[in-house]
Write a protein that binds this DNA or RNA. Structure first.
Lengths: 250, 250
DNA sequence: CGGGGAGTTGAATGCAGTCAACAAATGTGG
DNA sequence: CCACATTTGTTGACTGCATTCAACTCCCCG
């Protein structure tokens, strides 16, 4: 595994471009000092590396600083169910109990993580109610997104599902960028889309091309542009404004 | 709406049969006093009553004391997606932020709720780190269950889905009872099962009867018995022990 | 006794999976 | 830099699970 630790000259949290969309967005500068002390290192992984495995008992929690990550369960038949894609700002591998993780995580691109050793982190929680509340708030967001995904997957056909997933990722990724009108890089394969939505790659391909032919999405060599988000939201059977509230922190 | 408030002579939390499987299971007797002060009333609803609606901003959180509740989203086309069934001990309607609820809740049976006004509850959180941690721990459980449901719904056919749902409910309900070998009362219709799993009632019916004919489940007038949980777990494509850990709170 | 909700069954349709083959893009080593 | 292997994407034909539509039964409750 090609992972690398950085323990010195760590970048400052105050100036971090993704802070506002991370766990620490709600924590003011005063308390941020205390939180930053909990961060011991940054860790980098290459695309394709496992960050952790289902069944592991985590020793560190992470804030994803750069890149995309796929969280998934392995099925009995060898298949995968992707639970969600993590983007910069996402909080990974945290468990309040000392139980095993129920899913694995793999880097989709080269990534950087900010690492927080869990033992110290948990003992600090009692002194930092702000942090507890921030974690609750992130958990709530995760639950809401999961229920929203569940609804899309359970009740709709492939076109709706794919439209929903692409629009969600597009909204999240553009919210992290300055120039919100240029295409985003989509570091996932059609197989990943299938594994996230419970569809075969073949059916994903047909439906994906269908969306392209209708002009609802534009995509070549993994660069995705959505010319009219309102149109795609209609196909995805969601209200665009609600989806933005769900996907964009702050 | 036939709801009724009880504000005097509230039953003691210490002796509550469901405490150990509720939010407060992890809170010791000393701190329990402080928590109990936050509970202002018990509220009863009749089967079929709404407890809250999607879009409401909650003023109270609840511990479900008695009965079953269905949590669901309403779809554009008028359909419903049931997100989960709540059983005694479940914590409902809590939001750390002041945002609107993303789903509605309806009583499946006559129910009793313990009510906690949210304003007081939230201000107390800073003084009671145990409570924050308990809430995080409940959130984590909810996320894990949701991901598990998502996996079943996305990747498997109707027989697997129904087997999974019935086994989950059976395990949860029997864990709350003394006599774990007698049938449980299942206060949900085949339509509810369909709305939870994204299937039509007709297909639920056919598949349900299939499970009966195979002897995997026994069910008449809403009394469900599972003669061999290991067999049904195999059909549901889950490991029985893992499912028990996921469904039973200590 | 009549009405409504829930459950049951059959036949026809359609969305998505499976199998098979191939094309394009990407990566690797000689 | 090219040859080859691997991964990813594309297309067609066939199969099957789940939906739709329609009709009907059972049972509880007023």
């Amino acid at each position: 595994m090609a992972r690398k630790f950085i323990t010195q000259d760590l970048p400052k949290c105050e100036n971090c471009a993704i802070r506002k969309s991370s766990l620490f967005g709600e924590i003011d500068t005063f308390h941020l000092d205390k939180v930053r002390e909990l961060r011991t290192s940054q860790i980098t992984f290459n695309a394709g590396d496992y960050i952790y495995h289902e069944g592991d008992i985590p020793t560190r929690a992470y804030t994803l600083h750069q890149g995309w990550v796929s969280l998934f369960k392995t099925l009995e038949d060898g298949g995968r169910q992707i639970l969600r894609f993590a983007l910069p700002g996402d909080f990974l591998s945290y468990k309040s109990s000392n139980r095993a993780l129920d899913h694995s995580a793999i880097a989709l691109t080269d990534i950087t993580l900010c690492a927080f050793p869990l033992d110290r982190f948990k003992t600090k929680l009692a002194d930092l109610p702000e942090l507890s509340i921030a974690i609750s708030s992130v958990s709530e967001m995760t639950i809401q997104r999961c229920y929203s995904t569940l609804t899309t997957i359970a009740s709709h056909n492939a076109e709706v599902k794919i439209a929903y997933l692409l629009l969600s990722l597009y909204i999240r990724e553009t919210s992290l960028k300055q120039n919100q009108s240029e295409p985003i890089h989509l570091p996932i394969t059609q197989e990943d889309i299938g594994d996230a939505l419970g569809l075969t790659t073949i059916h994903v391909n047909r439906t994906f091309k269908g969306l392209q032919n209708k002009g609802l999405i534009e995509c070549n060599n993994r660069n995705l542009h959505i010319p009219d988000q309102t149109n795609l939201a209609e196909v995805a059977k969601v209200n665009l404004e609600s989806l933005k509230k769900l996907m964009v922190v702050v």
